[in-house]
Design a protein around this nucleic acid. Structure first.
Lengths: 248, 248
DNA sequence: ACTCGCCCTTGACTCAAATCAAGGCGCAGC
DNA sequence: GCTGCGCCTTGATTTGAGTCAAGGGCGAGT
């Protein structure tokens, strides 16, 4: 499950493309190394550990675990969640390839939530202590870390709003669409890797409401859903619906 | 309105107490400099600008303004908010003395929200660029910045939950109580510096609901409210109510 | 092929909070 | 002191989403 990165025979490429300096690190480069020069990438590179694959349902970390590393998703989908006092699951986020998990753990030194694989997941793990040490010598890396952290504050605030079930769902779908599109996948058709209950717990709805919202949006011709397969038929109108949630 | 800090005749104190190294910077020290040594404090000190006072209703920054500084509240209360597509105000937070505003602006280089003074507010402002530069030479300061940013991710997630009006209100009151207590004020009695409408927009309730929740909690003997003056009569039971929101 | 279990959908009913409507209170300014 | 305007409260009614209950359908494992 744990493969020290340095054992992999992938020499740092010599061309100028920062995203190919190590084929298996494309995503970590995209997540953390944007804007860094090649010597810096070389140093960052040795901190990377590839871990996984995790199977569906396997936990990556659990609430209360000691924090020591942040991780970038390379493949699959990760769900983070907590259980509230009544045992109900509150989903905090879904993380697609290229996204970074674990940042909220920095302040406490412990993970404040659970992270579980929704399908087969592989990760790049970075020791946070080493990253921070490296960042003191690399203003670009430090800036990137500040940026990532700050971004997450804004993301967390989005769902806090006071929106209707339809607005929340539209925002969720548009967000997924854009994130897939940014990674080169189709913006209009993709697989939902999470259950209806997961979506409900993320959007703060009942699972039945998720079902009803899907039906409503389908009847209005905005989407087509068949189990986990979803197609966005009218992205314009979905964006319109999502507009107040996404603040555009 | 803008007073370069270095012009103030407050020499750095020579005793060992980090909170008195500059009497007017006590709060900035508490916010940002915790754990730093005296030579580092000395360097941080020259970055500080005291600004204000802002009068009630004056804006500190507005959505879209260029980001260049974070600020620590030294006195008064700051409200941050955005207006959604329908023009409704969404309050993102209230900031009391000792708390830092503006962190969510880092990722975009622009403030993603408005900040307004609810009463007479004075601030310590720090150029973020200089702070970040300093942080590369001071691992302790860098760690502190990471910690603050990470903390805010967690805070933002709290209100995203799916809680009843009573639970949200109890959590709000307990949070205020603890934050006042941490600054040496009474934990059980304080002034609400914001209107009912502000509280409603923060807790995602209607203003009428805020009024009714106050009445309900008062009738049950948990609090006593008289206009802006509030007393927490049964903190134990309030904490019990707030427990699932605050995740304890 | 069968069956069990999980995931999902649908319908009926309930309920918490929003909305609509009216009026009270306190304070700033005349 | 009076007046007007915010701010706040209270009551009546509505409504969006939750809850409860029932059943359908796919897929994994035998």
């Amino acid at each position: 499950m744990k493969a020290p990165h340095t054992k992999r025979p992938n020499p740092i490429a010599d061309d100028g493309d920062e995203f190919t300096f190590c084929s298996t690190c494309a995503f970590s480069a995209a997540c953390l190394a944007r804007g860094l020069g090649k010597p810096e990438l070389r140093e960052l590179h040795v901190l990377v550990e590839h871990i996984g694959p995790f199977k569906e349902g396997e936990h990556i970390f659990r609430e209360g675990d000691e924090f020591n590393a942040i991780a970038a998703v390379r493949g699959g989908t990760v769900k983070t969640y907590v259980n509230d006092a009544e045992g109900r699951e509150q989903v905090q986020g879904f993380f697609l390839p290229g996204e970074v998990i674990g940042l909220s753990a920095i302040s406490q030194g412990r993970y404040p939530c659970n992270a579980v694989a929704l399908d087969t997941v592989i990760l790049c793990r970075f020791s946070f202590t080493s990253m921070a040490a490296l960042a003191t010598r690399m203003p670009g890396l430090q800036a990137q870390l500040f940026r990532l952290l700050s971004e997450d504050i804004g993301k967390a605030a989005l769902l806090a709003g006071n929106y209707s079930a339809d607005e929340r769902m539209a925002a969720f779908l548009i967000s997924l669409s854009r994130r897939y599109a940014a990674r080169g996948f189709s913006a209009s058709r993709f697989q939902l890797t999470m259950t209806r209950t997961d979506i409900a717990n993320y959007l703060r709805l009942a699972a039945e409401s998720v079902s009803r919202v899907f039906r409503r949006l389908q009847d209005e011709g905005l989407i087509r859903v068949d189990r986990r397969d979803i197609e966005l038929l009218d992205i314009k109108r979905l964006e319109e619906l999502a507009r107040s949630v996404l603040r555009e």
